[in-house]
Computed example of a mutant assay.
Amino acid sequence: MRTLVVSGYGVRLRVRRRCLIVEEGGERMVVPLAEIDRIVVVTSGVSITSSAVRALARYGVDIVFLDPHGTPMISLCPPWISASVETRLAQYRARLDPSLRLAYAKAFAQAKVLNQAHFLQELYLKTKASWLVEEAEKLQRLAAEIMLADKVSRVRSLEGVAAKIYWGAIASLLPPSLGFPGRDQDSADPVNTSLNYLYGLLYTWSFKALVVHGLDPYTGFLHEDRAGNPVLVFDYVEMFRVSAVDKLVYKLVTEGFRPEVDPNTGLLTRETRAKLVEEFAKWMRRRTRDGSGQAESLEKHLMLYARRLARAVRSQQPYQGFVEAVIA
């Protein structure tokens, strides 16, 4: 067990003899602290003792509290995870250098669009729907155009065009009964609400990966800086959206899983949220190859590419984004 999902009301967490004790309704589960990387709390009505928080911090365990939309409300991390100030100073210099900012923005956006193209290629291999080949080729052309862009605003514009092509293809493949109109953050259909929820988790995973390697999550390159918004996290997750979330949601719903939405609130039910977190944690442990052929778990790639970004920023050199190899 690397990620512990807490989804029940009235659950109590405490520590005894280097083990986490999870108590609920007269039942209890005992988990060695050394076997936990992260605790995700997806509901209210959960209590945790201060001694448990201190013990978990000593073991480097994150505690993440999500709201019903999947947005991280708070993430408790040990204070020693941040690296030296050298990386952040270099990051600020790169952000103020128009050519470097553009180069890093292109790297994030191109990687995202190439991953979208590769996923459509994989779906063609599975479905034999020949029209997917043409859509994937359109995305590959847009990825090439991104590298020729002379402004960050142009990069974002091309990324938007690619998104319409990609999500239009995904919508055509999913069962009509799901009511998926394409990507719409404000839609109450179960696919969009699931995507929103899991992107929130991906933000949390990515936030830590960036901070561990000394980067400032609030200073980005592709997205415009806004006070209080972790824009570098928004930049960074672009490269992993397809591999970490889109493919998972597609797999789940095409295999029969139906996310349940509470008709009174328009939010995913507690049971659905718990299921999604558990599946996401397992999915992030799957091994996959990047464009260079390096095989690692997705979670490891998330950390490796943050390290490479920090290294590129410190040396003021180009950055190669994460692109997952096509899975036949």
Rank of each mutant, 00 (worst) to 15 (best):
residue 27 E to N: 13
residue 28 R to A: 10
residue 28 R to W: 13
residue 29 M to C: 05
residue 30 V to L: 13
residue 30 V to H: 00
residue 32 P to H: 11
residue 33 L to D: 00
residue 33 L to A: 07
residue 35 E to N: 11
residue 35 E to V: 13
residue 35 E to S: 15
residue 37 D to P: 03
residue 37 D to W: 09
residue 38 R to T: 00
residue 41 V to A: 07
residue 42 V to Y: 13
residue 44 S to H: 14
residue 45 G to V: 03
residue 45 G to T: 07
residue 47 S to L: 12
residue 48 I to M: 15
residue 50 S to N: 11
residue 52 A to N: 03
residue 53 V to S: 04
residue 53 V to F: 12
residue 54 R to K: 10
residue 54 R to C: 01
residue 54 R to F: 04
residue 56 L to C: 11
residue 56 L to E: 00
residue 57 A to I: 04
residue 58 R to W: 03
residue 58 R to Q: 13
residue 58 R to I: 04
residue 59 Y to G: 10
residue 59 Y to N: 12
residue 60 G to Q: 04
residue 60 G to I: 02
residue 61 V to G: 02
residue 64 V to K: 02
residue 64 V to F: 03
residue 64 V to N: 01
residue 68 P to T: 10
residue 68 P to M: 06
residue 69 H to A: 09
residue 70 G to P: 05
residue 71 T to L: 01
residue 75 S to W: 00
residue 77 C to Y: 04
residue 78 P to M: 04
residue 85 V to M: 10
residue 86 E to N: 14
residue 87 T to F: 06
residue 87 T to I: 13
residue 88 R to S: 10
residue 88 R to H: 06
residue 89 L to F: 07
residue 90 A to Y: 08
residue 92 Y to T: 12
residue 93 R to W: 05
residue 93 R to C: 02
residue 94 A to Y: 08
residue 95 R to S: 11
residue 97 D to G: 12
residue 98 P to A: 04
residue 100 L to F: 12
residue 100 L to Y: 09
residue 101 R to A: 12
residue 101 R to I: 09
residue 106 K to Y: 00
residue 107 A to R: 06
residue 107 A to P: 05
residue 107 A to W: 02
residue 107 A to D: 00
residue 107 A to L: 12
residue 108 F to K: 02
residue 108 F to H: 03
residue 109 A to R: 05
residue 109 A to G: 09
residue 110 Q to C: 14
residue 110 Q to Y: 04
residue 110 Q to E: 11
residue 110 Q to R: 15
residue 111 A to L: 15
residue 112 K to F: 07
residue 113 V to D: 00
residue 114 L to I: 06
residue 118 H to Y: 09
residue 118 H to L: 02
residue 119 F to G: 06
residue 121 Q to P: 02
residue 122 E to I: 09
residue 124 Y to L: 08
residue 125 L to D: 08
residue 125 L to P: 06
residue 125 L to C: 08
residue 126 K to M: 06
residue 127 T to L: 10
residue 128 K to N: 10
residue 129 A to L: 15
residue 129 A to E: 14
residue 130 S to I: 09
residue 130 S to V: 13
residue 131 W to M: 10
residue 133 V to C: 03
residue 134 E to Q: 13
residue 135 E to W: 03
residue 136 A to T: 12
residue 137 E to Y: 14
residue 137 E to H: 15
residue 138 K to S: 13
residue 138 K to W: 01
residue 139 L to R: 01
residue 140 Q to G: 08
residue 141 R to W: 03
residue 141 R to Y: 02
residue 142 L to Y: 10
residue 143 A to K: 02
residue 145 E to K: 15
residue 146 I to W: 03
residue 151 K to C: 08
residue 152 V to F: 15
residue 153 S to F: 15
residue 153 S to A: 14
residue 154 R to N: 01
residue 157 S to I: 06
residue 157 S to E: 12
residue 158 L to E: 01
